[in-house]
Simulated scan of single mutants.
Amino acid sequence: MVGMVRLPLTVGEIERGQRLGALLRLARGERSILAVALEADVSPETLRKIETGRVATPSFPTIAALAQVLGLSLDELWAQVAEPSDAVSTA
């Protein structure tokens, strides 16, 4: 049996991962990575990697758990992550 080959990330995926990480860091504020990770049932190392953009495409359940702990709407989170940072918000 052949193992799965993971395709390289696109530039867009990398940029979205960086925006996601920045938004999660901002939402976390003064709370520690450890406290947020434990509450979301995510490893602190995973949260650190997401926040630094090293995990550009985290799983949906991981994003959903972090959003819930941080009080973020998934719709709003996706809207901000999906748009390039230089886009003008109409909200």
Results as ranks from 00 to 15, higher is better:
Ser85Arg: 13
Gln68Trp: 11
Glu76Gln: 13
Gly53Leu: 04
Arg25Pro: 02
Gly21Asn: 07
Ala87Pro: 02
Arg16Trp: 03
Leu74Cys: 05
Ala67Asp: 05
Ile63Gln: 03
Lys49Thr: 01
Arg48Lys: 08
Glu30Cys: 00
Glu13Ile: 03
Glu45Lys: 12
Leu38Glu: 13
Val5Leu: 12
Leu70Met: 13
Ala82Asn: 14
Phe60Gln: 05
Leu34Gln: 15
Glu39Gly: 00
Glu51Pro: 04
Ile33Thr: 12
Thr90Asp: 13
Ala35Leu: 13
Thr62Gln: 02
Leu20Arg: 03
Val5Thr: 15
Ala67Glu: 11
Ala22Gly: 00
Ala40Tyr: 07
Asp41Met: 11
Arg28Thr: 06
Leu34Ser: 02
Val55Phe: 04
Ala67Phe: 05
Arg48Val: 02
Gly29Cys: 09
Leu20Asp: 03
Phe60Leu: 07
Leu34His: 08
Val55Pro: 02
Pro8Ala: 02
Gly3Trp: 08
Glu76Val: 12
Ala64Glu: 14
Leu74His: 01
Ala79Ser: 14
Trp78Ile: 03
Arg16Asp: 12
Pro84Met: 11
Glu76Trp: 07
Val69Gln: 09
Val42Met: 06
Gly17Ala: 06
Leu38Arg: 13
Gly3Glu: 14
Leu72Trp: 10
Leu47Glu: 02
Ile63Tyr: 06
Thr52His: 11
Leu38Pro: 00
Val69Met: 04
Pro84Trp: 10
Arg6His: 09
Ser89Leu: 09
Trp78Met: 08
Val11Phe: 09
Glu13Arg: 15
Val11His: 09
Arg6Gly: 01
Ser85Cys: 01
Ala27Leu: 01
Leu72Asp: 06
Thr10Ser: 15
Ser89Glu: 15
Ser32Phe: 02
Leu34Gly: 00
Ala27Asn: 04
Val5Gly: 08
Val81Gln: 09
Ser32Asn: 01
Val69Trp: 10
Gly21Met: 05
Leu7Ala: 15
Glu45Cys: 03
